[in-house]
Amino acid sequence: MSNQNQQAVARYQNNFLKEVEDRVEDGDWVKMCMQCGVCAGSCPLGDAWEHTPQKIFMMIRAGKREEVLKSDAMWMCTSCYNCIVRCPRKLPITHIMHGLANYAHRMNLAPQRQPTRVIAKIFWDNLVKTGRVNELKFSLAMYFKDGFSQGIKNAMAMQSAGLGLMKAKRLNPFEIFGGHKCKDSSGIKKMIAKAREIEDRKKGYTPL
């Protein structure tokens, strides 16, 4: 993965804006920002951001590649779409934030312990195995993401919720043995692989 990053750096040299335009979802909108700051002000989680969207756009223009991609700012987006609705230049800010997060992840620059990133990764890995989310395994993976003893603590804390779900037949303990699968899980895997190939080609990534 870091190889991927080095190749990107070599390819775009100091033109991070161009890199974003080429490779980040809706990245070609970044240039349209006029620095009014309404996105930053409209964000309900704005307080939690290290850099506001409008500032991230300015950092991209200023070529601050590492600073942007290593930031956890865009991981804070909860997709409320307030910023998109308000942006006077109609930038799809939510999408750009997700695109940047994804790109940072692909470049292996995203903060490793960033919770949103962790949950997204667990979710994705869980999903692509069978084409369905295995909720039990997903819950357990979440419990144990910070180590075994923390996992036990989490499980104990959530015990009554878990039992309740089981009672209500919303959680099947036997899923631990594999659980539901899609009919054609290899087909799904092929589909995902193909989608990734297309995306990589479009964005100019080196194939994985």
Partner: peptide, 14 residues
């Protein structure tokens, strides 16, 4: 005109 320039990739720095 400003928008058009941004669209063409002119960078504006305050």
């Amino acid at each position: 005109f400003y928008r058009s320039a941004q669209n063409k990739g002119v960078t504006f720095t305050k």
